[in-house]
Design a protein around this nucleic acid. Structure first.
Length: 487
RNA sequence: GCGCGGGUAGCUCAGCGGUAGAGCAGUUGGCUUUUAACCAAUUGGUCCUGGGUUCGAUCCCCAGCCCGCGCACCA
């Protein structure tokens, strides 16, 4: 950190000396190209004996026994054991391994595969090449890194030493790739729309503000891509999706990172019910492919199952108002504002003074329904005040044709029958703008006047989806580099 | 922003008003199929930072920094 020689610990000093010893022997300590035949984990998994191989990886374990030694080479695919005997490689190479190399160093080996007495798939090393000398010691080989601050600030140490973390991020990557494939297979086109926007719309959230020097204008990091994707519907891109980052200037929590990954997809001529079908199919597909089935077990550190989420179809569907009546009383919506607050006190929901009726209802919904729903629940027909960009229901104009999918106690995915009437859309946004002091996106409203096809739309919070599917307790465990305060 | 909990060796942790300990890693020696290798010896500390109380503070008190959890914020 300070980079001052005299403050370095003994451990660092010894590694520097080994580095110098390598150089003195004419060995390049930071390697170069090394062509490999297999990654370590793959080789171990699809093992064949008597195979000539070249493998590269980091030394994560070493067991030296006089004139023979074992060590593990590892990367994100897993590990493979290597065996070196002094007799085969000679004194020089053996001493290199035993005296100048350390846990943490990157090594390329060439040799032939075999199985040891104890049945461990291994590589019998004939020669090796140093690919990088590590100048700092690795975390504890058994416990790995558990200090949250180190896990998040120095994610590479977490990835080196914790298989669980590696698994989560590999799984996330596979899932994201599969989501893209799933949508592309159904004719959706992936697009990219502005992350820097003049008017940050598509959601009610505080944006991050920045400034473009050459244009001399403020810009905002997007809080949602929605209004741009709808412009593309107008443009005739009838099936589009975007899977990328949104930014919201809010507090951090176990469920919130200021930048998070969102999928939004729009399907012309569809509606919210068909979008619900699509989400259900997609999530079940991911669970079956990457979680071993539709029962998702969440476990604590000791491996005890703490929760099982049942994704078996069909998923429950229920109107918002019915759910609230179920927990707050059949006459809830007939109560006055004051009576609602009294009822809240009775059922243990905290509300504050100035709340409007729909806000009190929403509070009841969040505390008594959303946070307690772990198996999938499609909440339908939500009050229109909450969703200004969706079509109003024909039979009940106080609600909109949407679903909010709740799984694992969190909102995972909203889906709308998208509002495409430019006149109604303007009214709804102006109404909202009056309350929340938001700017109207006139360019968006202009586009709607050219005609946006009727459409269904969905959002899926990818981070929360991955949390649900992998059993991660915190969003920081599914985001590689979560936001932390500067130290 | 508020409340609670935490910060001790490179890592994982214990400890305590009397100047600090274990396991792993490291170092030294032994060992040619081990795997948390083993056996023996051994190095390693700003006990988060700054004040205060005290004869004496890593420990008690106050303030600050960072992390976690909860609350608040958050369609």
């Amino acid at each position: 950190m300070q980079g001052q020689e005299h403050t370095e610990s003994e451990l660092l000093h010894i590694r520097r000396e080994k580095l110098e010893a390598l150089v003195a022997k004419g060995i390049e300590p930071f390697g170069g190209r090394f062509d490999t035949t297999h990654p370590p984990g793959t080789l171990r998994k699809d093992f064949e004996p008597e195979l000539p191989v070249r493998v590269g990886g980091r030394i994560t374990a070493r067991r030296v026994m006089g004139k023979a030694a074992f060590f593990d080479l590892a990367d994100f695919t897993g590990r493979i054991q290597c065996y070196v005997s002094k007799k085969d490689v000679g004194d020089e190479v053996f001493e290199l391994l035993a005296e100048m190399l350390d846990l943490g160093d990157w090594l390329g080996v060439e040799g032939k595969t075999f199985v040891t007495k104890t049945g461990e798939p291994s590589v019998h090393v004939a020669s090796m090449q140093v690919l990088s000398k590590s100048l700092r010691p690795l975390p504890d080989k058994w416990h790995g890194v558990t200090d949250k601050e180190i896990k998040y600030r120095q994610r590479y140490l977490d990835l080196i030493s914790n298989e669980r973390s590696r698994d989560i991020f590999v799984t996330r990557s596979l899932m994201v790739a599969e989501i893209r494939r799933f949508l592309q297979d159904r004719g959706f086109l992936e697009v990219e729309t502005p992350m820097m926007q003049d008017v940050p719309g598509g959601a009610a959230a505080t944006p991050f503000e920045t400034f473009h020097n050459a244009l001399g204008m403020p810009l905002y990091l997007r809080i949602a891509p929605e209004l741009f994707l709808k412009r593309l519907l107008v443009g005739g891109f009838t099936k589009v999706f975007e899977l990328n980052r949104n930014f919201r200037n809010e507090g951090l929590s176990r469920r919130h990172n200021p930048e998070f990954t969102m999928l939004e997809a729009y399907w012309a001529f569809s509606d919210f019910e068909q979008m619900a079908e699509l989400v259900e199919t997609l999530v079940c597909h991911l669970a079956e492919k990457y979680c071993g089935g539709l029962l998702i077990e969440h476990k604590d550190d000791e491996g005890n199952v703490t929760r099982t989420i049942n994704l078996q179809r069909p998923w429950r569907r229920a109107p918002y108002k019915d759910l609230i009546r179920g927990v707050a009383g059949a006459n809830w919506f007939e109560l006055t504002n004051e009576e609602k607050k009294t009822r809240c006190a009775e059922i243990g929901v905290e509300v504050s003074g100035g709340m409007e009726d729909y806000e009190i209802s929403q509070q009841v919904f969040e505390k008594l329904i959303e946070e307690k729903s772990f198996d999938p629940l499609f909440v339908t027909h939500v009050p229109k005040e909450l969703v200004p960009l969706a079509k109003q229901n024909k039979a009940d104009s106080s609600v909109v044709d949407v679903y909010e999918l709740v799984i694992n106690g969190q909102e995972i995915s909203p889906g709308y029958s998208e509002l495409n009437d430019p006149i109604v859309q303007r009214e709804r946004l102006e109404h909202q703008a009056g309350e929340e002091v938001q700017k109207l996106d006139e360019d968006f409203l202009l586009a709607l006047e050219y005609g946006m096809p009727s459409a269904g739309g969905i959002g899926i919070g990818i981070d929360r989806l991955v949390m649900m599917l992998t059993g991660a307790e915190s969003i920081r465990d599914v985001v590689l580099f979560p936001q932390l305060k500067k130290k």
